[in-house]
Design a protein around this nucleic acid. Structure first.
Lengths: 171, 171
DNA sequence: TCATTATAGTTAGCCTCCTAACTATGTCAA
DNA sequence: TTGACATAGTTAGGAGGCTAACTATAATGA
Protein backbone atom coordinates (compact mmCIF):
# COMPACT_ATOMS: atom_id res chain seq x y z
CA UNK A 1 0.00 0.00 0.00
CA UNK A 2 1.33 3.36 -0.90
CA UNK A 3 -0.35 6.68 -0.52
CA UNK A 4 0.87 10.06 -1.70
CA UNK A 5 -1.17 13.15 -1.26
CA UNK A 6 -0.65 16.77 -0.63
CA UNK A 7 -0.44 17.24 3.06
CA UNK A 8 -3.05 19.89 3.21
CA UNK A 9 -1.39 21.72 6.05
CA UNK A 10 -3.88 24.51 5.76
CA UNK A 11 -7.37 23.07 6.09
CA UNK A 12 -10.09 25.64 5.44
CA UNK A 13 -11.37 27.52 8.43
CA UNK A 14 -15.13 27.65 8.98
CA UNK A 15 -15.05 31.21 7.61
CA UNK A 16 -13.33 30.14 4.42
CA UNK A 17 -15.74 27.25 3.97
CA UNK A 18 -18.62 29.64 4.46
CA UNK A 19 -17.25 32.02 1.86
CA UNK A 20 -16.86 29.20 -0.65
CA UNK A 21 -20.34 27.91 0.17
CA UNK A 22 -21.79 31.29 -0.72
CA UNK A 23 -20.16 31.31 -4.13
CA UNK A 24 -20.82 27.60 -4.73
CA UNK A 25 -24.21 26.63 -3.31
CA UNK A 26 -23.61 22.90 -3.80
CA UNK A 27 -20.97 22.94 -1.07
CA UNK A 28 -21.84 20.72 1.89
CA UNK A 29 -19.69 22.24 4.60
CA UNK A 30 -19.59 19.34 7.06
CA UNK A 31 -19.02 16.86 4.25
CA UNK A 32 -16.06 18.87 2.97
CA UNK A 33 -14.55 19.23 6.41
CA UNK A 34 -14.75 15.51 7.19
CA UNK A 35 -13.49 14.53 3.77
CA UNK A 36 -10.43 16.78 3.93
CA UNK A 37 -9.79 15.75 7.51
CA UNK A 38 -9.81 12.08 6.50
CA UNK A 39 -7.40 12.66 3.62
CA UNK A 40 -5.12 14.73 5.78
CA UNK A 41 -4.84 12.26 8.66
CA UNK A 42 -4.43 9.33 6.26
CA UNK A 43 -1.63 11.14 4.45
CA UNK A 44 0.18 11.84 7.67
CA UNK A 45 -0.23 8.21 8.69
CA UNK A 46 1.15 7.07 5.35
CA UNK A 47 4.14 9.37 5.63
CA UNK A 48 4.77 8.18 9.19
CA UNK A 49 4.60 4.57 8.03
CA UNK A 50 7.15 5.29 5.31
CA UNK A 51 9.38 6.97 7.85
CA UNK A 52 9.17 3.86 10.02
CA UNK A 53 9.85 1.49 7.12
CA UNK A 54 12.68 3.56 5.67
CA UNK A 55 14.70 2.89 8.82
CA UNK A 56 14.74 -0.69 7.58
CA UNK A 57 15.56 0.31 4.00
CA UNK A 58 12.00 -0.39 2.83
CA UNK A 59 9.06 1.63 1.60
CA UNK A 60 5.42 0.60 1.43
CA UNK A 61 5.67 -0.99 -2.02
CA UNK A 62 8.50 -3.40 -1.31
CA UNK A 63 7.30 -4.03 2.25
CA UNK A 64 3.87 -5.03 1.08
CA UNK A 65 5.31 -7.48 -1.47
CA UNK A 66 7.30 -9.19 1.28
CA UNK A 67 4.20 -9.47 3.46
CA UNK A 68 2.11 -10.94 0.64
CA UNK A 69 4.81 -13.53 -0.02
CA UNK A 70 5.00 -14.45 3.66
CA UNK A 71 1.26 -15.04 3.69
CA UNK A 72 1.60 -17.77 1.09
CA UNK A 73 2.07 -21.40 2.08
CA UNK A 74 5.01 -21.77 -0.33
CA UNK A 75 6.29 -18.23 0.36
CA UNK A 76 5.93 -17.50 -3.33
CA UNK A 77 3.68 -15.91 -5.92
CA UNK A 78 3.86 -14.35 -9.39
CA UNK A 79 4.39 -10.73 -10.45
CA UNK A 80 0.87 -10.54 -11.92
CA UNK A 81 -0.81 -11.74 -8.76
CA UNK A 82 1.34 -9.51 -6.58
CA UNK A 83 0.51 -6.53 -8.80
CA UNK A 84 -3.18 -7.26 -8.56
CA UNK A 85 -3.09 -7.63 -4.78
CA UNK A 86 -1.07 -4.47 -4.15
CA UNK A 87 -2.99 -2.45 -6.70
CA UNK A 88 0.00 -1.42 -8.79
CA UNK A 89 0.56 -2.16 -12.47
CA UNK A 90 2.60 -5.13 -13.62
CA UNK A 91 5.20 -2.69 -14.90
CA UNK A 92 5.58 -1.21 -11.44
CA UNK A 93 5.76 -4.68 -9.91
CA UNK A 94 8.66 -5.54 -12.22
CA UNK A 95 10.57 -2.65 -10.66
CA UNK A 96 9.64 -3.58 -7.10
CA UNK A 97 10.77 -7.17 -7.62
CA UNK A 98 13.96 -5.97 -9.31
CA UNK A 99 14.97 -3.98 -6.27
CA UNK A 100 13.93 -6.69 -3.80
CA UNK A 101 15.91 -9.26 -5.77
CA UNK A 102 18.91 -6.94 -5.87
CA UNK A 103 18.73 -6.78 -2.08
CA UNK A 104 18.53 -10.56 -1.85
CA UNK A 105 15.10 -10.51 -0.22
CA UNK A 106 13.33 -12.41 -3.00
CA UNK A 107 14.42 -14.57 -5.96
CA UNK A 108 12.90 -15.09 -9.39
CA UNK A 109 12.50 -18.73 -10.41
CA UNK A 110 11.40 -19.85 -13.88
CA UNK A 111 8.08 -21.64 -13.93
CA UNK A 112 8.45 -24.96 -15.75
CA UNK A 113 4.70 -25.34 -16.20
CA UNK A 114 4.16 -21.99 -17.95
CA UNK A 115 7.25 -20.54 -19.54
CA UNK A 116 5.71 -17.09 -19.78
CA UNK A 117 5.53 -16.96 -16.03
CA UNK A 118 7.98 -16.33 -13.22
CA UNK A 119 7.73 -17.40 -9.60
CA UNK A 120 8.83 -14.86 -6.99
CA UNK A 121 9.96 -16.46 -3.75
CA UNK A 122 10.77 -14.99 -0.36
CA UNK A 123 14.36 -15.82 0.61
CA UNK A 124 15.64 -16.56 4.10
CA UNK A 125 17.07 -13.06 4.11
CA UNK A 126 13.63 -11.73 3.15
CA UNK A 127 11.99 -13.59 6.01
CA UNK A 128 14.71 -12.38 8.36
CA UNK A 129 14.04 -8.82 7.23
CA UNK A 130 10.35 -9.21 8.03
CA UNK A 131 11.23 -10.68 11.41
CA UNK A 132 12.96 -7.40 12.20
CA UNK A 133 10.55 -5.00 10.51
CA UNK A 134 7.22 -6.44 11.59
CA UNK A 135 7.78 -6.39 15.36
CA UNK A 136 8.96 -2.80 15.10
CA UNK A 137 5.97 -1.84 12.94
CA UNK A 138 3.48 -3.66 15.17
CA UNK A 139 4.89 -2.12 18.31
CA UNK A 140 4.68 1.39 16.86
CA UNK A 141 1.24 0.84 15.40
CA UNK A 142 -0.08 -0.45 18.71
CA UNK A 143 1.12 2.76 20.36
CA UNK A 144 -0.26 4.90 17.58
CA UNK A 145 -3.72 3.41 17.92
CA UNK A 146 -3.83 3.06 21.69
CA UNK A 147 -6.02 6.14 22.01
CA UNK A 148 -8.84 4.24 20.31
CA UNK A 149 -10.66 1.56 22.25
CA UNK A 150 -12.20 -1.39 20.45
CA UNK A 151 -15.58 0.32 20.26
CA UNK A 152 -14.12 3.33 18.51
CA UNK A 153 -12.19 1.10 16.14
CA UNK A 154 -15.41 -0.61 15.16
CA UNK A 155 -17.15 2.74 14.78
CA UNK A 156 -14.34 3.85 12.49
CA UNK A 157 -14.61 0.71 10.38
CA UNK A 158 -18.33 1.20 10.06
CA UNK A 159 -17.96 4.83 9.00
CA UNK A 160 -15.25 3.93 6.51
CA UNK A 161 -17.57 1.32 5.05
CA UNK A 162 -20.25 3.96 4.52
CA UNK A 163 -17.79 6.31 2.86
CA UNK A 164 -16.54 3.58 0.60
CA UNK A 165 -20.06 3.06 -0.67
CA UNK A 166 -20.10 6.68 -1.79
CA UNK A 167 -16.80 6.63 -3.65
CA UNK A 168 -18.28 5.70 -7.04
CA UNK A 169 -20.32 8.91 -6.89
CA UNK A 170 -17.12 10.94 -6.61
CA UNK A 171 -15.45 9.63 -9.74
CA UNK B 1 -3.38 17.89 -1.07
CA UNK B 2 -2.04 14.88 -2.85
CA UNK B 3 -1.95 11.34 -1.58
CA UNK B 4 -0.36 8.31 -3.22
CA UNK B 5 -0.44 4.91 -1.62
CA UNK B 6 -0.65 1.29 -2.59
CA UNK B 7 -4.23 0.39 -2.92
CA UNK B 8 -4.02 -2.59 -0.65
CA UNK B 9 -6.61 -4.57 -2.58
CA UNK B 10 -5.96 -7.59 -0.45
CA UNK B 11 -6.47 -6.68 3.17
CA UNK B 12 -5.49 -9.45 5.57
CA UNK B 13 -8.24 -11.86 6.56
CA UNK B 14 -8.76 -12.54 10.26
CA UNK B 15 -6.96 -15.85 9.75
CA UNK B 16 -3.92 -14.17 8.22
CA UNK B 17 -3.84 -11.58 10.99
CA UNK B 18 -4.05 -14.37 13.55
CA UNK B 19 -1.15 -16.19 11.92
CA UNK B 20 0.97 -13.05 11.92
CA UNK B 21 -0.02 -12.32 15.52
CA UNK B 22 1.31 -15.73 16.56
CA UNK B 23 4.70 -15.10 14.99
CA UNK B 24 4.81 -11.46 16.11
CA UNK B 25 3.29 -11.10 19.60
CA UNK B 26 3.30 -7.30 19.45
CA UNK B 27 0.59 -7.36 16.81
CA UNK B 28 -2.65 -5.68 17.89
CA UNK B 29 -5.13 -7.24 15.52
CA UNK B 30 -7.94 -4.69 15.73
CA UNK B 31 -5.47 -1.81 15.54
CA UNK B 32 -3.93 -3.24 12.37
CA UNK B 33 -7.30 -3.85 10.75
CA UNK B 34 -8.56 -0.32 11.42
CA UNK B 35 -5.28 1.25 10.36
CA UNK B 36 -5.15 -0.59 7.04
CA UNK B 37 -8.81 0.05 6.45
CA UNK B 38 -8.29 3.77 6.96
CA UNK B 39 -5.36 3.88 4.57
CA UNK B 40 -7.23 1.87 1.97
CA UNK B 41 -10.40 3.97 1.98
CA UNK B 42 -8.39 7.20 1.98
CA UNK B 43 -6.36 6.02 -0.98
CA UNK B 44 -9.47 5.16 -2.93
CA UNK B 45 -10.93 8.55 -2.07
CA UNK B 46 -7.77 10.27 -3.24
CA UNK B 47 -7.76 8.36 -6.52
CA UNK B 48 -11.43 9.17 -7.04
CA UNK B 49 -10.74 12.84 -6.39
CA UNK B 50 -7.95 12.80 -8.95
CA UNK B 51 -10.26 11.11 -11.44
CA UNK B 52 -12.81 13.87 -10.87
CA UNK B 53 -10.22 16.65 -11.19
CA UNK B 54 -8.53 15.16 -14.23
CA UNK B 55 -11.73 15.67 -16.22
CA UNK B 56 -10.95 19.36 -15.77
CA UNK B 57 -7.28 18.93 -16.66
CA UNK B 58 -6.23 19.33 -13.03
CA UNK B 59 -4.74 17.11 -10.34
CA UNK B 60 -4.69 17.67 -6.59
CA UNK B 61 -1.49 19.71 -6.59
CA UNK B 62 -2.49 22.36 -9.10
CA UNK B 63 -6.10 22.36 -7.88
CA UNK B 64 -5.05 23.05 -4.34
CA UNK B 65 -2.85 25.98 -5.41
CA UNK B 66 -5.79 27.57 -7.23
CA UNK B 67 -7.99 27.18 -4.15
CA UNK B 68 -5.39 28.70 -1.85
CA UNK B 69 -5.08 31.69 -4.17
CA UNK B 70 -8.83 32.15 -4.31
CA UNK B 71 -8.93 32.24 -0.52
CA UNK B 72 -6.71 35.31 -0.47
CA UNK B 73 -8.15 38.80 -0.48
CA UNK B 74 -5.82 39.85 -3.32
CA UNK B 75 -6.04 36.44 -5.05
CA UNK B 76 -2.28 36.15 -4.72
CA UNK B 77 0.48 34.63 -2.65
CA UNK B 78 4.13 33.57 -2.98
CA UNK B 79 5.64 30.21 -3.94
CA UNK B 80 7.12 29.76 -0.46
CA UNK B 81 3.83 30.32 1.31
CA UNK B 82 1.95 28.13 -1.13
CA UNK B 83 4.54 25.38 -0.66
CA UNK B 84 4.20 25.59 3.08
CA UNK B 85 0.41 25.48 2.99
CA UNK B 86 0.18 22.55 0.57
CA UNK B 87 2.97 20.62 2.27
CA UNK B 88 5.18 20.27 -0.79
CA UNK B 89 8.74 21.55 -1.21
CA UNK B 90 9.49 24.89 -2.83
CA UNK B 91 11.07 22.96 -5.70
CA UNK B 92 7.83 21.12 -6.31
CA UNK B 93 5.87 24.36 -6.07
CA UNK B 94 8.05 25.86 -8.80
CA UNK B 95 6.87 23.08 -11.10
CA UNK B 96 3.21 23.43 -10.11
CA UNK B 97 3.28 27.16 -10.76
CA UNK B 98 5.11 26.59 -14.05
CA UNK B 99 2.34 24.39 -15.36
CA UNK B 100 -0.44 26.61 -14.02
CA UNK B 101 1.20 29.62 -15.63
CA UNK B 102 1.57 27.75 -18.89
CA UNK B 103 -2.16 27.07 -18.79
CA UNK B 104 -2.85 30.75 -18.12
CA UNK B 105 -4.48 30.06 -14.75
CA UNK B 106 -1.95 32.06 -12.72
CA UNK B 107 0.69 34.68 -13.46
CA UNK B 108 4.04 35.43 -11.84
CA UNK B 109 4.59 39.09 -10.97
CA UNK B 110 7.87 40.48 -9.67
CA UNK B 111 7.70 41.84 -6.16
CA UNK B 112 9.10 45.36 -6.09
CA UNK B 113 9.49 45.34 -2.31
CA UNK B 114 11.63 42.19 -2.16
CA UNK B 115 13.40 41.38 -5.39
CA UNK B 116 14.09 37.80 -4.30
CA UNK B 117 10.39 37.17 -4.19
CA UNK B 118 7.67 36.51 -6.74
CA UNK B 119 3.94 37.07 -6.43
CA UNK B 120 1.67 34.40 -7.87
CA UNK B 121 -1.73 35.70 -8.85
CA UNK B 122 -4.91 33.93 -9.89
CA UNK B 123 -5.98 35.10 -13.37
CA UNK B 124 -9.53 35.54 -14.59
CA UNK B 125 -9.08 32.26 -16.45
CA UNK B 126 -7.98 30.64 -13.20
CA UNK B 127 -11.05 31.91 -11.39
CA UNK B 128 -13.22 30.75 -14.29
CA UNK B 129 -11.62 27.31 -14.06
CA UNK B 130 -12.49 27.13 -10.36
CA UNK B 131 -16.02 28.27 -11.11
CA UNK B 132 -16.39 25.15 -13.24
CA UNK B 133 -14.41 22.70 -11.13
CA UNK B 134 -15.67 23.55 -7.68
CA UNK B 135 -19.41 23.09 -8.29
CA UNK B 136 -18.68 19.74 -9.92
CA UNK B 137 -16.42 18.69 -7.04
CA UNK B 138 -18.86 19.89 -4.37
CA UNK B 139 -21.79 18.14 -6.02
CA UNK B 140 -19.92 14.85 -6.24
CA UNK B 141 -18.54 15.13 -2.74
CA UNK B 142 -21.99 15.81 -1.33
CA UNK B 143 -23.22 12.61 -2.95
CA UNK B 144 -20.20 10.67 -1.81
CA UNK B 145 -20.72 11.65 1.82
CA UNK B 146 -24.50 11.50 1.89
CA UNK B 147 -24.43 8.14 3.67
CA UNK B 148 -22.98 9.87 6.74
CA UNK B 149 -25.25 12.03 8.84
CA UNK B 150 -23.85 14.96 10.78
CA UNK B 151 -23.45 12.87 13.92
CA UNK B 152 -21.33 10.31 12.11
CA UNK B 153 -19.27 13.06 10.53
CA UNK B 154 -18.52 14.45 13.96
CA UNK B 155 -17.72 10.98 15.27
CA UNK B 156 -15.29 10.54 12.38
CA UNK B 157 -13.62 13.86 13.09
CA UNK B 158 -13.24 12.95 16.73
CA UNK B 159 -11.72 9.55 15.92
CA UNK B 160 -9.35 11.12 13.38
CA UNK B 161 -8.25 13.55 16.05
CA UNK B 162 -7.40 10.68 18.38
CA UNK B 163 -5.44 8.89 15.68
CA UNK B 164 -3.54 12.02 14.82
CA UNK B 165 -2.37 12.26 18.40
CA UNK B 166 -0.79 8.82 17.99
CA UNK B 167 1.07 9.54 14.77
CA UNK B 168 4.29 10.71 16.42
CA UNK B 169 4.55 7.26 18.04
CA UNK B 170 4.55 5.63 14.60
CA UNK B 171 7.49 7.54 13.18
C1' DT C 1 30.80 49.03 6.47
C1' DC C 2 31.07 44.71 4.89
C1' DA C 3 31.49 39.71 5.88
C1' DT C 4 28.36 36.33 7.35
C1' DT C 5 24.16 34.26 7.48
C1' DA C 6 19.34 33.70 6.05
C1' DT C 7 15.76 33.62 2.63
C1' DA C 8 13.32 33.16 -2.20
C1' DG C 9 13.27 30.82 -6.10
C1' DT C 10 15.12 27.68 -9.49
C1' DT C 11 17.67 23.81 -11.44
C1' DA C 12 19.54 19.09 -11.69
C1' DG C 13 19.17 14.54 -10.80
C1' DC C 14 16.85 10.66 -8.47
C1' DC C 15 12.72 7.80 -7.16
C1' DT C 16 8.36 5.48 -7.89
C1' DC C 17 4.46 5.57 -9.99
C1' DC C 18 1.93 5.45 -14.62
C1' DT C 19 0.59 4.13 -19.80
C1' DA C 20 1.71 2.10 -24.03
C1' DA C 21 4.17 -0.86 -26.69
C1' DC C 22 6.85 -4.92 -27.17
C1' DT C 23 8.44 -10.13 -26.79
C1' DA C 24 7.41 -14.62 -25.71
C1' DT C 25 4.32 -18.11 -24.70
C1' DG C 26 -0.17 -20.33 -24.27
C1' DT C 27 -5.10 -21.20 -25.75
C1' DC C 28 -8.80 -21.95 -28.71
C1' DA C 29 -11.59 -22.64 -32.53
C1' DA C 30 -12.29 -22.74 -37.64
C1' DT D 1 -3.08 -27.37 -37.75
C1' DT D 2 -2.70 -22.91 -37.64
C1' DG D 3 -4.35 -18.05 -37.33
C1' DA D 4 -6.32 -15.06 -33.98
C1' DC D 5 -6.54 -13.79 -29.54
C1' DA D 6 -5.12 -13.78 -24.58
C1' DT D 7 -1.74 -13.67 -21.00
C1' DA D 8 3.00 -12.92 -18.47
C1' DG D 9 6.57 -10.11 -18.06
C1' DT D 10 9.53 -6.35 -19.46
C1' DT D 11 11.00 -2.00 -21.45
C1' DA D 12 10.64 2.94 -22.74
C1' DG D 13 9.22 7.23 -21.80
C1' DG D 14 6.50 10.60 -19.07
C1' DA D 15 4.55 12.83 -14.67
C1' DG D 16 5.15 14.59 -10.25
C1' DG D 17 7.10 13.96 -5.95
C1' DC D 18 11.85 14.53 -3.39
C1' DT D 19 16.81 16.34 -1.85
C1' DA D 20 20.74 19.02 -2.65
C1' DA D 21 23.01 22.54 -4.74
C1' DC D 22 22.96 26.92 -6.95
C1' DT D 23 21.91 32.22 -7.84
C1' DA D 24 20.28 36.38 -6.26
C1' DT D 25 18.82 39.34 -2.73
C1' DA D 26 18.11 40.77 2.07
C1' DA D 27 19.23 41.11 6.93
C1' DT D 28 22.45 41.09 10.68
C1' DG D 29 26.17 42.21 13.57
C1' DA D 30 31.23 42.77 14.60
Amino acid sequence: MMLIMLQLRDLPTPEVLQKFAERYPDADVTAIASFLNLLRVATELSLALDACLSKHDLLQGRWWVLILLMREERLSSTPSILAEKTGVTRATMTGLIDSLEQGGLVVRVFDKADRRSVIVKLTDAGQAKLDVVMPDYYRRLRQCMQGLDVTKREELNQILGLIQLGIPALI
